[in-house]
Design a protein around this nucleic acid. Structure first.
Lengths: 338, 338
DNA sequence: CTGAAAGCGCTTACAG
DNA sequence: CTGAAAGCGCTTACAG
């Protein structure tokens, strides 16, 4: 590797000042057109690499945005991420990504690292049990926080997610409308807002239809394909013999349907199953999955826009922004045969 | 936000020099134990945030490692990523992630951004059609490159991936051993090394068993679940009526099996199907997928280690490091009934 | 339209 | 064991 090329290298080689070079490279109209072109050509010729750390030290803006979620391997988060990515790409921001796997330590380390790098802002789906102080630390140091998918009740931060109570009621009512009366709820945990809200929505929908709520029909816990798969065994051993299952999300539903099939049952015929999220693969599964569209792409896009707006000074109102879910009826649910 | 706390704030409040504070915070034995503790306590009390940009400007090491692959939403890459992540976590490196979606422009932008940030190194699965100069640019500027999953023939970079020819032969021979003679190959493209190598391995295995190779039995293209799903229609219309399919990867195989099921066939009984990669969901699918373990976790771990070793000065030999694939026999393949 | 100079917040020889 | 000072590579008032 040859001698490091910096602004002053270009400046000296052209007999101008570094100030002029700096301005020219950023297309400042303060520099004469001809000078600007000459400088840019020279910069290319020398293979100049802009040093963002030096610039950022001076300007105290880094162009870095942090993003931390439970697990990007989960397609639910991956779909949110993809929308954020495409929004940030067009504003020439760089993003730093991390999974926290619901470890508050890992999340805190990430926030601290981002502060050290001078991150401009952070979009996150907070870990279970997140101490408000950890998020407050970011805000206090001038790094705005936007929440996606999960709520933090103790802080008034801009939050983008689906309306879980409303959405799960759509699924539950759909099954009730097909004549089902013994409906299990599979998956989800009370430790997250989505887990609580979706269970509550399911309970409310049953009550509204005068169907008694049996706590044994709640198979709490599963949040992955694997756990949904395993839950099928438990489901089939229930004495109440439910004819349908409202699953906490699509991953659980897809694993659950595979578990039913493994036990010799035909999902969508013997047992009706609904998912939640409308992941890309929901329509590819066999049977295709009846589910609730949860607007991941919308959530990501809006959260990214909210952050960019905040960074550019406009004052978006804080608080909760709910996406309205929609029903997607496919083949995994059917009318109950008597 | 109050007054910014920096090294000199701590130094002044304690009546020592910034040099002493700097050394103390990094646990240098040059600073007396008592002084060190006093400084650390004060740093915590004031809520000091270390400015990495300033440090990095001075030391020209950033602790940032870049990672760019086709698409992390693809579980194949997600599994590699996860292994890299856990390896880097323990060495207190930060990583910056990007998808290139096989766009060489997006890949180049990423490499340039990483250079601007003073990235220490980069792990990548190069985009289709990557110009060697783009990777050379990183190397020339002191940022070492490690390749995963895909090969770049034109450069001698450390590369970690599975032995595709060997692995696909395992799958093909498994089907031949079960009595299949009309075996299709579904998915993959000649534009990537994995696409070429796996097709070649399939062809070689057939030839070795004296089974004529019919180019019409190659359904090239599909690389996703969706495309695998759609390929089932094409497969079922083949005049040669194949009894088995070697799929290019697990995603294609899972989509393909769903497509067969949608057409009323039972995968694993009517048609034998093999996958490739042994993704986590391969064993959860119904029928569970016979596939080839491709060592994603190994690839990620070894690539991360190779980069860290290189950064710490030890000279790992460059070139290709092949992981040896292994067969995973499950329920999606069965003996051919006459 | 262009230049000289200060400063962002660290670390690192060098002295003592 | 501790301090004074230079310097990493930019940008930004300020002069002219």
């Amino acid at each position: 590797m040859a001698q490091k090329i910096k602004l002053s290298t270009i400046a000296e080689s052209l007999g101008v000042s570094t100030a002029t070079v700096s301005l020219a490279l950023r297309d400042s109209p303060l520099v004469a057109e001809a000078t600007r072109e000459k400088i840019k050509a020279q910069s290319r010729a020398l293979g100049y690499i802009y040093n963002r750390r030096a610039a950022s030290l001076r300007t105290s803006r880094s162009g870095i945005i942090g993003l931390i979620v439970h697990d990007i391997q989960n397609p639910f988060y991956a779909e949110i991420l993809k929308a954020i990515e495409s929004e940030l790409d067009r504003s020439s921001h760089t993003f730093i990504l991390s999974n926290h796997y619901d470890s508050v330590e890992k999340q805190r380390t990430f926030i601290e690292t981002l502060l050290q790098l001078g991150g401009d802002g952070i979009i996150m789906s907070p870990a279970i049990g997140s101490p408000p102080e950890d998020l407050q630390l970011a805000e206090d140091n001038g790094m705005p926080v936007i929440l996606v998918a999960r709520t933090m009740d103790s802080l008034d931060l801009p939050t983008y997610r689906g309306d879980d109570g409303y959405g799960i009621a759509l699924a539950t009512n759909h099954l009730i409308g097909l004549g089902h009366k013994s409906i299990a709820m599979v998956g989800g945990t009370d430790q997250t807002s989505t887990g609580r809200d979706r269970y509550q929505g399911y309970v409310d929908a049953l009550k509204k239809a005068n169907i008694p709520v049996d706590p044994k029909l709640r198979l709490a816990g599963p949040r992955t394909k694997q756990a949904g798969f395993e839950a099928a065994v438990h489901f089939l051993s229930l004495p109440q013999k439910p004819t349908a299952a409202v699953c906490w999300n699509d991953l659980v539903a897809i694993g659950f349907m595979s578990g039913l099939a493994r036990a010799g049952l035909v999902p969508g015929k013997d047992i009706s199953v609904t998912g939640y999220d409308d992941l890309e693969e929901a329509s590819i599964a066999t049977p295709s999955l009846t589910t609730v569209w949860n607007g991941q792409a919308e959530v990501g896009r809006l959260a990214a826009r909210a952050l960019l707006d905040k960074l550019s000074g406009s004052h978006e109102p804080d608080g909760l922004h709910l996406i309205k879910p929609e029903m997607r009826i496919r083949q995994s649910t059917a009318r109950l045969l008597r």
